[in-house]
Design a protein around this nucleic acid. Structure first.
Lengths: 212, 212
DNA sequence: ATTACAACTATACCCGGGTATAGCGGGTTA
DNA sequence: TAACCCGCTATACCCGGGTATAGTTGTAAT
């Protein structure tokens, strides 16, 4: 197991939400010592009032926090916003808690006291995941934008095309002439910026996979 | 959250590996009461000597076992054999243990004493996953067999075709005439039982996804 | 009412995929 | 040696995707 070095995470952000000031202080020191950009919050409320930067990001959450449960927060948050990798830290955790956290996609679940390096490793993994996710989201965003630039008719035709239907068949089902469908297909290829049917197929798959 | 009913799992197998006879007895009763097919083993060794039936299957493992650690066993086993869903149960577990188990893909990690229904829910989830996996493996197996029925040349060409290359380009790179490539492509479509280029593309993606 | 635009259509044409037929050369088997 | 299979090739042909040009509708904006 090779350890990811912090160098790759220049433009990343670590967010800590913990009500214990001493923890925040200690983590501030730890992160600055390895050159990680970090932001500290004492409560979820504070964090929500903050506008996240447009970088890879990883959350470090205390499970037990004033007002709100860290686990509940993670689940709500990952539904409303883009899923952000979470590393849990806690002094008073139990097994069901950790299992629930891991089930809902947490990167790691550490009990205090933990080794600094364990936390860093988890954060590096989280940031890497966030980065990958951001890249995927960017390409999917492009694709979706292109797909939405299609007219209703074009979308209909595209959906049938990627199912392998021939222009003739599509024309029959939509009560159009074959030539109309062909023109439409050309328009689709242009708008989607696809150079071949295969590429269009892959685009459609990507769009479906996330929409699901 | 709706509970999956055991009816769907007529042709399934639950495997319990636990060195405590009283646990095995209790679980035997539980499973028979809900109509689940179950096999009990006192050790990993015993289990390995057994030939698994060709059905969906879910393992119930005690983490701490004589001789071998349940976690290590899970990781080794999932590498060597097809991944089989695992539900851990333990009396003396800790958080790092549970986190490690969940990270390596366990369905659930329960601490004794647990509610019968919780175990059953986890098992149903595991069996469902196993079933899905079996179906996927079956179709991939077909695909792979077809792919392996291709000649070396045909595989070369197919790999280039699904990358979107034209017959002309393929011919140039392989120092063949265009017509040869076309004939080859036809042969590929027949052997792979693909009716369109799109279908061939999807097949290739499926093959790649598992091979990775 | 005129203009403008969008969707649809027809004709004609080009290009690439795919097949059928047939021929060629090399290696294997009887 | 003869028969045979296999991979490669050539010719000719068919079909479907894709474009260009041009013309038809209907509809919405001025």
């Amino acid at each position: 197991m090779t350890r990811v070095q912090p160098f790759h995470f220049r433009d990343s952000t670590v967010v800590v939400i913990d009500d214990d000031p001493s923890v925040r202080k200690a983590l501030t020191n730890l992160f600055s010592s390895v050159g990680l950009n970090a932001h500290m919050f004492a409560s979820i409320k504070e964090f929500l009032a903050w506008s996240m930067p447009d970088t890879p990001i990883c959350l470090v959450l205390d499970v037990r926090m004033p007002g709100r449960n860290g686990l509940d927060f993670q689940q709500e948050f990952s539904r409303s916003h883009a899923e952000i990798p979470v590393v849990f830290i806690t002094a008073h955790g139990d097994i069901p808690m950790s299992v629930r956290a891991m089930k809902s996609g947490a990167i790691e679940f550490l009990t205090k006291p933990f080794k600094d390096q364990d936390l860093l490793d988890a954060i590096y993994a989280g940031l890497a995941k966030s980065q990958t996710r951001r890249e995927e989201m960017a390409t999917i965003g492009d694709l979706r934008a292109r797909y939405e630039s299609l007219s209703v008719r074009e979308r209909q035709v595209m959906d049938m095309v990627v199912k392998g239907q021939l222009s003739k068949q599509i024309a029959a089902k939509l009560h159009l002439s074959e030539i109309t469908v062909k023109v439409c297909r050309g328009q689709i290829m242009r708008k989607m910026q696809a150079t071949s049917l295969l590429e269009l197929g892959r685009m459609s798959e990507k769009l479906d996979r996330i929409a699901n």
